[in-house]
Design a protein around this nucleic acid. Sequence first.
DNA 1: GCAAATTATTTTAGGGTTCAAATATCCTCC
DNA 2: GGAGGATATTTGAACCCTAAAATAATTTGC
Lengths: 165, 165
Amino acid sequence: MMLDAETKALEEPSAHEAEVRLWLRLLTCANLIEGEIRSKLRERFDITLPRFDLMAQLDRAPEGMTLSDVSRRMMVSNGNVTHIVDKLLASGDLDRRTAEHDRRVQVISLTSKGRAEFRAMAAEHADWLARLFAGLGETDINDLMRLLAKAKASVRAGLAEETAR
Amino acid sequence: MMLDAETKALEEPSAHEAEVRLWLRLLTCANLIEGEIRSKLRERFDITLPRFDLMAQLDRAPEGMTLSDVSRRMMVSNGNVTHIVDKLLASGDLDRRTAEHDRRVQVISLTSKGRAEFRAMAAEHADWLARLFAGLGETDINDLMRLLAKAKASVRAGLAEETAR
DNA sequence: GCAAATTATTTTAGGGTTCAAATATCCTCC
DNA sequence: GGAGGATATTTGAACCCTAAAATAATTTGC
């Protein structure tokens, strides 16, 4: 018996149920943690998560990064990076200069003030995560790392398949 | 030798590194999937993810839900729910009525139009997820479900510990 | 019965986010 | 050496989001 897509959906409401439930569980975990990190960052350091993330990227790039690099690494839009950078420039945590070889390119880097602030925040940040994951053993963490890597690869493959089509 | 917290952080920059890396990997996975779902929802149905999520909650509650229920279930703020509901009311996907037993309470539910639209969207939504997770076997999915449940419990315990303190 | 505390919702202020359009600069190739 | 295409960034419009204050209605304790 052949069914069109709509009829089939009505008759098989649980199709791909496992995948949907996996996604919802993954999302719930991420949202719980993200909410806690956001509220801790605000409460302890009066900073937002995106600004913290941007400083984390720059901490690993002593020479600085271009805005496009940041945008790719953080997986956020270019316009968004411009906005976050503006705020961190205003608070004196970042330096910005135009690249000499290409005047379209803006290179940003941490000021020494920004670097010192970031290091202090990063240490606490790691402590918060350790507390949240305290219920997981070393084996659990390793297994999760492996399975999430596999999931990430699967997702990227699915995305690539689509753009190729 | 005793060290204060700051000195210790400087001398042990890799403390809790495993937990931080687990968090970053979890977040990357979630962001990749969420970005794809958002862009598909926009492209195929011109709807945002929060509106889709609200409709999903209501689809499982034929009698309707109060705004506070929705806020708790979706883990978003009350003010945000008000905003999203306004939009879905305007597009005719939701009904809203004041509860007779308590005039503070607003009960919202899907209109038949909203329900039909949601069912069509949900079927495709499940297909997108199945495609993204196509690289995972049944065992992988089961393992991930179990480990993420454990992680979720750990995070909730960590949060509870803090509020108790 | 009524003042005070509680509860449900809305409003407000301040961010963050995307996409698409606009600018500015560079590069290529004739 | 200049036109056309590519690349880096900014701007603008429309959302989403939260926390905190304000509003409205109910419940509680006396």
